[in-house]
């Protein structure tokens, strides 16, 4: 593709970050960045006032998970998890009462069938950390106890979007 004025990666970045993405955000289910930031703050506050939304992972885990997600999942699900060729992994269209997912449903699914090109190919711990990141991005608070593979694979906590 040398005939292109710019490299294809630059092209891709432009599209994901530019007006195209803004439009997609309008029609699909993306969370604007501001909203995501608000969500993260909310997650911080959750540690003290956890209440109905349980703390299932640590902040450090979610941070590692964010990196693993960027490297292995963002190409298809979007850098902001807004969805592209794969569905959005944040927001009310993803973690909905209608979908009725439990944490274990999603964890078992992603750890066996994702990334789509080479399902199940990542180290198990990466999937656990990515699950922590997905919880964070759907408004679940961080806590003091790390998510383990066993806990993720058996958790019956419903996955419902708790962001604003």
């Amino acid at each position: 593709m040398n005939a292109l004025p710019d490299g294809s990666r630059a092209w891709r970045r432009r599209l994901l970050g530019g007006a195209g993405a803004a439009l997609l955000a309008g029609t699909a289910s993306a969370q604007p960045l501001a909203q995501q930031l608000a969500m993260t703050q909310n997650a911080g506050a959750g540690q003290e006032t956890a209440g109905a939304v349980p703390a299932l992972y640590t902040a450090a885990q979610a941070a590692t998970g964010a990196d693993k997600f960027a490297a292995n999942c963002a190409l298809c699900h979007g850098k902001k998890l807004q969805g592209r060729v794969g569905p959005a992994l944040t927001g009310p269209n993803f973690a909905s009462a209608k979908a009725n997912f439990k944490v274990s449903d999603v964890f078992l699914f992603l750890s066996r069938q994702m990334p789509a090109q080479q399902p199940g190919s990542l180290p198990k711990q990466d999937y656990v950390d990515i699950m922590a990141f997905l919880l964070q991005q759907n408004g679940y608070p961080a806590g003091g106890v790390p998510l383990t593979e066993a806990a993720a694979a058996s958790s019956t906590v419903p996955l419902l979007y708790h962001g604003k």
Binding site: V85, P87, N93, F94, A99
Partner: peptide, 17 residues
């Protein structure tokens, strides 16, 4: 014509949208 997909998760679309 733009079909409204704003409330759709596109969860069960396997092979690209």
């Amino acid at each position: 014509y733009k079909h409204d997909l704003s409330a759709v998760g596109l969860k069960t679309v396997c092979c690209d949208v």
